[in-house]
């Protein structure tokens, strides 16, 4: 999966969690949590959706890697290289 495709995947998952999420002003190097008003429960949704869709097992200690859109892409790129 390309970096752009991974980005789209993450945004698609977030949109699925919150259909009113506003991506227009989203800065990819700033925490998603603050910009989109997500809480830790919502983050778990991202993890579980990645697991459901791509059979990814993300251990709890790696959750901080998903903090920003850029860090998500960096973290997921090697895991989804064959996807």
């Amino acid at each position: 999966m390309t970096r752009d495709a991974i980005k789209d995947l993450v945004l698609e998952i977030i949109e699925d969690i919150d259909e009113d999420a506003d991506f227009d002003t989203l800065e990819s190097d700033k925490p998603l949590r603050d910009q989109l008003d997500l809480d830790s429960m919502d983050f778990l949704d991202i993890v579980m959706e990645l697991r459901k869709r791509h059979k990814l097992q993300i251990p709890e200690e790696d959750y901080p890697e998903l903090a920003t859109l850029d860090s998500c892409v960096n973290y997921l790129e090697p895991l989804l290289k064959d996807a």
């Binding site: 969690i17 919150d18 008003d37 809480d39 429960m41 919502d42 949704d45």
Partner: peptide, 12 residues
């Protein structure tokens, strides 16, 4: 009010 318990619950 996204952070309200009811709305968080429904999202979950």
């Amino acid at each position: 009010d996204k952070k309200a318990p009811l709305n968080r619950l429904l999202r979950q």
